[in-house]
Write a protein that binds this DNA or RNA. Sequence first.
DNA 1: TGCCATAATGTACGCGTGTACATTAAATTA
DNA 2: TAATTTAATGTACACGCGTACATTATGGCA
Lengths: 346, 346
Amino acid sequence: MLFRRPSIISRKEVAKLAGVSEATVSRVLNNVGPMKEETRERVLLAAAELGYVPNALAQQFARRKSGNIGVILPFVPKVHLFSTYYFSEILSGIGETAKRCGYDLLLIFREPDEARDYAKLFRTQKIDACIVLGSQNVPEERAALAELKAGGFPFCLVNQRYDEEQYATVDADHITGSMAVVRHLVERGRRKVAFVNGPAQYSNSADRLQGYKAALQEAGIPFRQQLVYTGNYSRKSGYELAEQIAKQIRDGSIDAVFAANDRMAIGLMQGLRELALEAGQHYALVGYDDSDGSRIISPRLSTVSVPFYEMGKLAAASLLDQARGDETDPLRQHVLPVSLVPRETS
Amino acid sequence: MLFRRPSIISRKEVAKLAGVSEATVSRVLNNVGPMKEETRERVLLAAAELGYVPNALAQQFARRKSGNIGVILPFVPKVHLFSTYYFSEILSGIGETAKRCGYDLLLIFREPDEARDYAKLFRTQKIDACIVLGSQNVPEERAALAELKAGGFPFCLVNQRYDEEQYATVDADHITGSMAVVRHLVERGRRKVAFVNGPAQYSNSADRLQGYKAALQEAGIPFRQQLVYTGNYSRKSGYELAEQIAKQIRDGSIDAVFAANDRMAIGLMQGLRELALEAGQHYALVGYDDSDGSRIISPRLSTVSVPFYEMGKLAAASLLDQARGDETDPLRQHVLPVSLVPRETS
DNA sequence: TGCCATAATGTACGCGTGTACATTAAATTA
DNA sequence: TAATTTAATGTACACGCGTACATTATGGCA
């Protein structure tokens, strides 16, 4: 293996060695226009001989395309607010599709208090398209997304929708999922189903509430506001609701709890255990996400499985269609099915 | 908010509006060379007026720097082999430092059976430096890393070291961590400490074994090969060892287990529970990583806390020093301390 | 054979920036 | 004041690639 300064080898050297013009080298490598087979081979041979690798920066510049998909995600180290499983699965899904289409992933951490100038990423040409994870319905975010839309930049939201505005979206069917949970509980004879929801700035929370209400109505159970609690999707927030909920379990006004994610369900479960109330015994419990934790805890937590990986794949695919103009409806709202996973707590 | 094709605004328009040459605009924006304050203001004003944003692709091309740090990580969707917590923490740490230094993160998923041409990423100029996560000591990987080193490309490994070759590394002190675990168990009166290790291609595994042995020796307990098991860091692999280990617990040849990570510890714990053996009661158990799961499971798992976030930060910092030539020892092997977290299982 | 369509290749230039070097303006010094 | 330095700015070009257009080779057809 001989050593050689790699950076000095450009199209020019290949052209010289192959005895053709630089344009021909370019055409061969990009497979554009008609060309003589013999020339093609000579160029490829020369390129291989020299170990030529096209300069991606020059390519990007000349093509006016970065070839990058931006992935915007919340910056939450040490804060176990979101399921890390959630992100890594979605990210893997995005990565799989992106790679297949020749795109790279540019990771962008959104900082809580920072201006969310997503459009700038496009204006600088750093990214050709982007996927927004963990989007929250707050004013700065809405402004940032509106600017993206106004600029005609292709982007896609995962797990969040906005009622005010139409955006390309990939989401899971949390309404149906939540209905399935409540139905399941009702089928098991529970009729006093409490609901521990997440913050309102996530459309997920609203969806789950809607599903919860719909299923209650379907079962002829009146909705009661005092059975609805709000946490922030963290385990701690679930834990902290234990005392209040314990009281209601004891006085008979709650016989089941549906928590909007596993983390809160687990926190609640632990809190209630400290108060001598066992899930699956003194009350039924169902979480949401089918996270690792739901399988680890005992009794094993009933939950709802969400196809995060597929959502990531779909988001990337839809985005790239959009960027290519292949997507018939650029504001398509994809909704993937979820599935109930009954286990020991219900 | 007026609409305007953003892409047509380049340095040229700014120069014209400010009444200066393009070079002056460039100098003002890059703050290079002496310049009249009045000119500076005029240029900045013009830039702001036009909403000028430099084209990052052109900058990268002209500077011959992508401004990207590559992060190579294993592609393991649906395979909960690694702790996803591990990756998200390290990634956040890297991202924090990178952003502070004006770098972006380019995510690269390593596929199992794919050629690992890390050097190509540098040759194409897609990245200026890179961090390798989840590196395994296998021939292709060694070759890829050796090529990086030979090419003089700045890179850094996290959580993996190679004995054959010196590379810049950020690792945690798993030898001391493992010793602390065994000491802890011995202090609690355990003397028959089994060890469930991970695969040998991770230096982490070797480190833990070394610490295990050292602590046994320190306590005057002879090392016995039949107390050493090997899993693959997955929960399942821990679960599957339950039967064998149960036997040894029952016949008195094991009274404690040290598992090389929490996932295996948890799997084992669940497996043993099915065999009517309870952690913290019939045997002591200590895991490693201080993952979410360790806090979720009951009884809560004793474990070792690893500063993943800090490791990510340090890796990025050391890498950027290296790239700038500020690092005195470009092959520096950082080792961060870990800490024992005794909980209910020991 | 001559003409034309098409294949194959070369020439030339743009992409937007950074920057070396040239030039001019201003400040300093003799 | 003239000479000299230094500040400030302009001119010109490279960076490596894609590609429109020009040019030349090739083959088909009358």
